[in-house]
Design a protein around this nucleic acid. Structure first.
Lengths: 179, 179
DNA sequence: TCCGAATCATCAAACATTTGATCATTTGAG
DNA sequence: CTCAAATGATCAAATGTTTGATGATTCGGA
């Protein structure tokens, strides 16, 4: 890797992945450039979609993206233990704990001790929380649809299949999971 | 949507997408379930990969995931203006500003005023920053490779193609971009 | 039954991100 | 040339995440 090489004239968000892969391939021995490209691209595509959804749909309605995920899970799967909520919405128990402070303060959810186990926490939506998701989900799904229209139906299916296969392989990859 | 329906016996990280899509389809009119499934799956797959890379490779070496992204960009594309760094690493100028405080304090990067425009900031890696990325990138790419092995080579290529097509469609989707 | 181990939740400190405001510098129209 | 508008960077306040520690409750083997 030549530390003095100047960047190309127009290094932009769009050209960076190609540039990075080419440069790493030239300068480093034994780089798996396909894997590098896959992870870089996956990261970027997701960031774009999430940023769009959060900034156009949820923040204007008073929810952050993580807040939406939790309310969404509670809306779909009904009252449940906090441990389950954390798992299905893909966050650590500690992160959920902090997030619940905001959601509870805003009157969207209610915390209650579980009857069968006084360590456990039972979460449920308030009327206001129910209303928040009702209002937001339509707009959310419309923007999801706009993104999905970039791909043919068969391509959408294939993308989902590939992502699921990638996730399923995490066991073989000995990937680390959240708490 | 039935607000009283109890969640299934075993609602887990793995079963949630199927459950959510089925439930929404049953209970709501006119939901685009394919788009819903695509965005949910994209989000989950990316979270898994990034969490694994951050927690097994970068945090143990003293870098956060965003910190790595910035050092990585500077390593590959050489000294550059902060504005460019923010753009290619997918963060807002304000977020980069805060992140640079940490990286500068840790002695990994140097801030300097650009000569041609005294408003602009020129970023470059220090010796220590250069060493940090040299040590970490190998491990990073090895884990990327482990993830990529879940897919056949042709599937990796196809996944990247579909993600790029998705991103390219953001213009038609009138997606909102970062600052 | 008792007590150590496991489990559930929260806390604390450090860090990163968002939006919106502010300050310094540069640009460009008149 | 002048001054308002645009641009680059930072700041401020609120929020969410991470890791590691601490409390409370339950479980399970001796």
């Amino acid at each position: 890797m030549n530390r003095e090489t100047a960047p190309p004239d127009a290094l932009t968000f769009w050209s960076f992945v190609d540039y990075a892969v080419r440069k790493a391939d030239q300068e480093l021995p034994a780089v798996n450039t396909d894997a590098m490209r896959m992870v870089l691209t996956l990261n970027r595509a997701t960031s774009m979609v999430i940023y769009d959804l959060e900034s156009t749909v949820h923040r204007p309605r008073g929810l952050t993206w993580p807040g939406f995920r939790v309310i969404f899970a509670l809306w779909l799967a009904g009252p449940m233990e906090a441990k389950t909520t954390a798992e299905i919405s893909g966050m650590s128990r500690a992160a959920l704990s902090a997030l619940l402070n905001t959601l509870e303060r805003d009157g969207l959810i209610v915390r209650a001790r579980a009857s069968h186990d006084r360590r456990a926490l039972q979460l449920s939506l308030t009327e206001e929380g129910y209303g928040a998701i009702l209002g937001g989900f339509r707009a959310h799904n419309l923007r999801e649809s706009a993104w999905a229209e970039s791909l043919e139906p068969a391509e959408q299916t294939e993308l989902v299949r590939l992502l699921n296969k990638l996730m399923a392989g995490s066991t073989d990859a000995k990937a680390k999971f959240r708490n």
